[in-house]
Amino acid sequence: MANTESLENIVLELRRGVIVLAALSQLGTEEYGYSLLKKLADLGLEVDQGTLYPLLRRLEAQGLLESDWKIEESRPRRYYVISAEGKKILTKLKKEWAGIVSVMDKMLA
């Protein structure tokens, strides 16, 4: 029982680390919170709303995302898109990720 719990926690930690990269990578085109959540889920990454929405706000505060309210289907939605600064960071993050993957592949082979 304790083991499944710690396994869950470790998996959660692992996922949490990649959410920023995942979100930035998928915001080349505008998305609102819920559509991004579904997009990530469709691609196979289930993210909790409680994690994703505050994260989007944080990334915007850091200048990596830009956002804008738009009214669609009579409902206001906040659309996020990656900023110029975010694109620079994303390029670097991608390299980091490739590095991590290759190192871990070697270790786990």
Binding site: Y34, S35, Y53, R57, R75, P76, R78
Partner: peptide
């Protein structure tokens, strides 16, 4: 935050 949450829930 409130507006975004409402819009999400409605979606």
């Amino acid at each position: 935050i409130e507006n975004e949450l409402r819009s999400t829930l409605e979606d």
